[in-house]
Design a protein around this nucleic acid. Structure first.
Length: 156
DNA sequence: GCCAACGTTGGC
DNA sequence: GCCAACGTTGGC
């Protein structure tokens, strides 16, 4: 059982969209480090923080659960799709995705500013300067602190 | 919308 | 395999 933080711009897909959908594939990751995490490490049952990037405010919006481990991103095979990548084929896929399911939405966004200001979250990757990785590992401790800060009484 | 930080590409 | 140019991310 592992913990993750996954970023998305809410203008593209938000925690509200996920709540409405119930579950979704996590599409369009085109970064090798993030791909490796999704392909090799994420397991069903893992929990992930849903982070709104490029938002007002940017911060953690809620929690989701990994419900399907990494599998080839078929959107990379579709020449008409914006996530198309000619290097990726069904025989030799380059890009992967996972499926996630909605767990909870925080009462309010926990802003990045508060994450940076919290001593117990010292060293958390998302608060580091120039942290651009869209899928990040997260310690259980940091996950729990963030859920507590967001005012949740019980962990999922 | 700016721009710093970073990842990727491609010429050599 | 170096590294400059280019593209992208994401806070502000």
């Amino acid at each position: 059982m592992a913990y993750w933080l996954m970023k998305c711009e809410p203008s593209a897909y938000s925690i509200d969209d996920l709540e409405k959908d119930g579950s979704s594939s996590w599409e369009g990751v085109r970064n090798y480090q993030a791909r490796n995490i999704m392909r090799d490490q994420m397991q069903p049952g893992d929990l992930a923080l849903f982070y709104h990037s490029n938002a007002e405010p940017s911060g953690v919006a809620g929690v989701m659960k990994i419900v399907r481990a990494g599998y080839p991103d078929h959107l990379a095979f579709d020449a008409s799709h914006k996530y198309y990548d000619a290097r990726s084929t069904p025989d030799k896929p380059v890009w992967y995705m996972v499926d996630v399911a909605f767990v909870t939405k925080f009462a309010s966004i926990l802003p990045l500013q508060q994450i940076k200001a919290e001593p117990r979250l010292k060293g958390i990757m998302v608060a580091q300067q120039g942290s651009r990785l869209s899928v990040q590992p997260l310690s259980e401790e940091h996950f729990k602190v963030i859920c507590a800060m967001a005012g949740r009484k019980k962990l999922p």
